[in-house]
Design a protein around this nucleic acid. Sequence first.
RNA 1: GCCCCUAUCGUCUAUCGGUUAGGACGGAAGAUUCUCAUUCUUCAAAGCGGGGUUCGAUUCCCCGUGGGGGCGCCA
Length: 467
Amino acid sequence: MSQVRVRFAPSPTGFFHIGSARTALFNWLYARHTGGTFILRIEDTDKERNSEEFLRVIYDSLAWLGMGWDEGPRVGGNGGGDHGPYRQSERAHIYREYLEKLKAAGRTYEKDGATWFKLLGERHEVYDEHRKKTVTKVKTAPMVIEDAIRGRVERVEDEDFVIVRSDGNPVFHFVNVVDDIAMRITHVIRGEDHLSNTSKHVALFEAFGVKPPIFAHIPLILKQNGPGKMSKRDQGALIEEYQRRGYSPEAVVNFIALLGWNPGDDREKMPIAEIVRLFDLPAVNQSNARFDDKKMAHMNFLYLQELPAEDYLARARAQLAAAGSAAPAAGGAAEVEAYVREVLELARPKIKGLDELPAYTAYFWGEDYPTDEKAKAKVLGKGEPKARLAELVEALRAPAADFGSDAALEAVIKALAEARGLGFGDYQGVARMAVTGLSAGPSLTSILRLLGRERVVARLERFAAAL
RNA sequence: GCCCCUAUCGUCUAUCGGUUAGGACGGAAGAUUCUCAUUCUUCAAAGCGGGGUUCGAUUCCCCGUGGGGGCGCCA
C-alpha cells in the first residue's frame, strides 16, 4: 500500500470557517494516523481578492490550531515539497499541459469561447424546467464513487461542463482533479457538499486514464439555530473568534473532532495524540451535526482548568492586555508578578473562559473599576449596611486583623458577627460590594487579603461615605 | 423540478439483530460553600411513519416523510 497523501485545499476568502477547520483537521488526523503526508494547497484562482492578506488568515488559523503541513507553501517551518508550486495561481502551466492531454484524447470542444469537457454517450436536447432553458443531455454510464465513509455511491453525470472559461481561466472541477493527479493525492477528504460534484471529478480522472483517489465525504456542520449549514455569519463560525475570546486551541480541536467522529466509546476530552491514534475514516458519521456553542464552551472550560500554570498565566495576560485591562504587564517586580499570578489563579476555577477575566478581575488592578448598580441596590436594600460597614472598617483597621491569611480574616469577621448575633453572611455581601463593585466573585477573604489592609479600608470608607 | 446523502433524548453521540437503549452538553431538584462558580447526588428526556426480512428489529431492505447538499464560464 502506497503512502497516504491527503490535501486541504482552502481558498483565501479572508475567513477561516469552523467547517474548513474540521475538514483540515480530518485530513491532518488521517495523515498523522497513517503516517502519511498532509498537503496544503491554496485554491486562489479567483484573482479579485487580496490574496496575501487573506492567505495569512489560513496560515495563522492552521498554526493556532496546531496543524502543520508537510507539503505546501513555505511558512513558519511548514511546507516545501516536490509537487509544487502549491498555489493554484502559480500552476497555470500545469493546467495547460493537462488540458492538452484531454484535447489530444478528443475529450474537449470549444463553445461560446469556453472549453468544455465532452462526456461519452448519445446526446439529445431537452428543456430544463428548473433552469428554464434547453440543455444537451448525454446518456452516460453511472460514475462510481468509492467513498470511505458512505460506501459505494453512484451518480449519473449527464451534461458536458466547462473546464476552461472564455477568459482563459480553468474552473475548479478541472484544476482540482489535475492537482490531485499531479500531487498524487490518495484520499480526498472533504465536505459532503462536494459529493454531487464528485461524478464530474471521476469522469475527469477516467478521461485522464487515472484511477480516482478514495473519497471520504464528511458530514456538514449545521447552524445552531435555523435551517441550513453553518455560514461565516453565524455565531461561533469563525476560528478567529475563538482566538479573540481566548479559547484554548486544544479545546477547539477536541470539540470539532467530535463533530462527526467519536472514538467508539464514551470518552470526549482526549489529548490530540489519542485522537490521532484512534481516528479513522470509516468511524466518521454520515449525518450532519448541529453546532452547539454551550458544549464548545464546556470543552474550553475543561481545558482551561488543567492548563499548566505558566501557560495559563501567559494566556490570561494576553487576554487582559487585548481587553485593555490595567493589569500590570509581565516582567515587573517580583512582588507584582506574584500578585498578578495569585489573582489570576484565584479567578481561574471560577470562570468559564478567559474572556470573562477582564471584568472578573477589574478591581484588582486599580481604583477605577465599574460598579454593578443593580446588584448594589439589592445589597443595600436589606439589613443595615451602614452599620456593618462601620464595624468592618473598625475591625479591619485594627492591627489585630491579620491580612496575611484568609483564615485570620475570616476569624476576624466571624468574631465581629458573633458579637452581634449575626452571621458571616451579614458582612460578606456589603463588604464584597464595597470592595469590588460586584455581588459575585472569588472568596471574600482572599480578595481582602490580596488587596491589603490599606486599599480595603479606603474602599470601605469611600463606599460608606457615599451612602 | 431533477439528482445525491442522511434519520436514536432539545443538541453531540454509543449500540455493529436479543440492552432496564448508555454517556456528554443543556435543563430541573437537592447537598456542599462567605457570594458566584466549581464539585457531588438525583431526576426528566430518544429509536420519524408504514411495510417487509427474521424466532426476534433502533440495528438489514423498500416506500413515504423530515433534514442536508448539489444542479454556474463560484470554489
